[in-house]
Design a protein around this nucleic acid. Structure first.
Lengths: 189, 189
DNA sequence: TTTGACATGTAAGCCGTTACATGATTTA
DNA sequence: TAAATCATGTAACGGCTTACATGTCAAA
């Protein structure tokens, strides 16, 4: 079973929900580290229902379309907990096309490399600010401590990207001014 | 065109190669941030050939199977360089099932959470050591500076994961010994 | 009157994986 | 004699995405 199945089980474990509601939830916090599309959600629900891990109650509504509200079965709870307990998450493929570009950066003028690095830096800085704010806010809600931990993970990684970008900047600076032994603090010309 | 196509173009730009040779190369450094399977490589070659971005020369060998050695066309070089120059790499989905587990960690006993964190830490520490060694070695080869930069990126991120795991450790320690106001340095009992 | 929220899905297709198929030659 | 290396692919399938299809009701 794909991780997406467990992601849906996890969301349902917090509260029963219709496909529509789940489709909205997957654009929430979880999208930061497990993006899913709407269709994907509906597909997972079909699978989980066939496996008996979730069940639906038909809710008829006046003035609004009827909906099917899903909730975990006992088997669903067991499956979720068993998965959560496994300390195995090795197979995730960290794909990063920025690094593919860096690997072949020999083909680029240093100005173009600098553009790549700056674009990466800008993105990382925006991410850092966004996540720092979230971590800060959640600090005050002990009940959200694990949610906070996911944001903290992202924050530390954004900081890592920033640190890397700064190192790359320095490397690129040395390329463009390679006057052999250059003093640390040049007097203005 | 998927990034994998450009990855193959990039490898071929360094030196012409047969499908077999490429299939070996994709298990090399590039596998750290763009994993590809053997079949995937052969598939990409078909696509790139149809698009006129690579061409093959048939090499007949005695005592060994014949092979088709691919090289970039002018169009292939142009396509690669155009892609390398674009400072856009936004769409990469960073998927991380560890964080999915953390998000639902409320369902777990703190011992199980600690196991997750320790497993993540162990993996990150192994990765840190592996990459630190590579970064160190490549230090001495200025020609490999961009290859080194990709390892450095991985190194900084492994360090970020370690820092995060240590913060989680502390958080978990506080959970297990919550004797209200605890002194910094407890005298032994 | 049109747009947006509510609500559920299907269809087509892409990217990529694992497993399989074939067959010669070299090395243990 | 068995395994590894060289060499090229095919088949089947899984996961996921985008775009499309359908329809009601409330609000602007």
């Amino acid at each position: 079973m794909p991780v997406s199945s467990f992601a849906v089980l996890g969301l349902l474990s917090q509260s029963p929900a219709s496909g529509y509601q789940l489709a909205q939830q997957v654009d929430g916090p979880i999208s930061n580290f497990w993006p899913m599309s709407k269709s994907n959600v509906y597909g997972e629900l079909v699978r989980l229902e066939e496996l008996g891990l979730v069940e639906a109650s038909d809710i008829s509504q006046v003035k609004l379309p009827n909906k099917r509200v899903f909730h975990l079965t006992a088997a669903g709870e067991a499956a979720l907990d068993a998965w959560l307990r496994e300390p195995t998450f090795r197979k995730e493929r960290r794909k990063n096309s920025l690094l593919v570009k860096m690997l072949f950066a020999d083909r680029l003028a240093s100005g173009h490399i600098a553009e790549l690095v700056e674009a990466a830096r800008d993105e990382a800085e925006a991410e850092r600010a966004r996540l720092a704010a979230i971590v800060d806010v959640l600090e005050e809600f002990p009940a959200a401590q694990w949610g906070r931990s996911t944001a903290l993970f992202g924050l530390r990684h954004a900081e890592a990207t920033l640190a890397w970008a700064d190192e790359m900047r320095r490397q690129l600076d040395q390329l463009s001014e390679p006057r052999s032994t250059r003093r640390r603090h040049d007097p203005p010309a």
